[in-house]
Design a protein around this nucleic acid. Sequence first.
DNA 1: ACACTAAAGCTACATCAGTTGCGATTGGAG
DNA 2: CTCCAATCGCAACTGATGTAGCTTTAGTGT
Lengths: 195, 195
Amino acid sequence: MQSNKRPGGRSARVRDAVRRATLAELGEHGYAGLTVENVAERSGVHKTTVYRRWGNVTGLISDALDLAADEPWPIPDTGSIEGDLRGIVQLVRSGFDDPGLGPVSSAFVAAAMQSPDAARALHAFFAARHEQSAEVVRRAVTRGELPGHVDVHEVIRVAVAPVYYRLFVAHEPVSEQDAARAADAALAAARAGVL
Amino acid sequence: MQSNKRPGGRSARVRDAVRRATLAELGEHGYAGLTVENVAERSGVHKTTVYRRWGNVTGLISDALDLAADEPWPIPDTGSIEGDLRGIVQLVRSGFDDPGLGPVSSAFVAAAMQSPDAARALHAFFAARHEQSAEVVRRAVTRGELPGHVDVHEVIRVAVAPVYYRLFVAHEPVSEQDAARAADAALAAARAGVL
DNA sequence: ACACTAAAGCTACATCAGTTGCGATTGGAG
DNA sequence: CTCCAATCGCAACTGATGTAGCTTTAGTGT
């Protein structure tokens, strides 16, 4: 998305400043309150420059998202698939519950609904997350807790889906019990050989 | 949301015209292309009137959503819980796949992410849908296909969640097989007594 | 039928997101 | 060290979105 004609130097500094400002603004005012002008002012980069390189707010978010995709996240290793799956789903839940991270994460989802670029970025983000998370399922297969033919990614999807569904589609609250139950349901399905 | 000082007459006609125009515009240009001015022009209602009563595009969508919530939808009755659940999930899938309905339904989800009003409207919409869909689970309990203590709403949530997750969060395609598998997974979990 | 008033229409205006053209900097190649 | 191309800063501008004040229309109650 970004040009790499001049990877080091001012361009890189500008990009960093804008990314940082985008995340900060998102954290404070959320997606609805994110404007190009505010990001420009906060970053000390001129408005025109931001428009030229990022185009609009969804461009800003797509870029910040690329950044976030790189950061690995702490996959649990509790020794049992039940504990690991529950841990992952709780991680998802708390990520949106947290007052600092919540608005930022939500903004990613919201932006992806409005811009194909952001959708692609979010798709890549989740592909990475699925890949990392699937490790707990592979370990479970190795331990003999799950049949060898399970679709490791699908187990993750089914486990986390109800949390996202409640948050972003049905707009219902998500308790820790809800999260645990979603993980357990995915596990039961995997054990039954459906996934 | 709307005043009912003068339920019959011009106000009602205006409201109908605007609702109709909103749905038509959504179908043609999607959420991103929905503007108050276009809806005003299409409906023959003056721009200022639309702003006064609906405020902005999310207001328009919230109102259209209230309308959509009333329409009942064709819950399947295949005789088995497996067939019914699969039918419901396919109904969800095809609702977003359809070139006419897809953009409208997606707009509802998108709008609910940006406006508390739309979120409330969508919440009510899904509460109604869950209630109607839960009937297939109750019938299954009556037939003895599922244990009596299942959370009938949760079975529906877990069944449809993966479809929404793929569509609106991970931005992955959703095949008919994916949909069927999601239904089967929910069913397996319910049979295992997890839901 | 008539008066009353809520609500819609209309014009003009204000505001803000996004664009354009040009001159000033900056980083990197030779 | 010098030059050149890429990128940034700046100010002025455009168009779209939303608002204010006032007039007109049309339901509703007597």
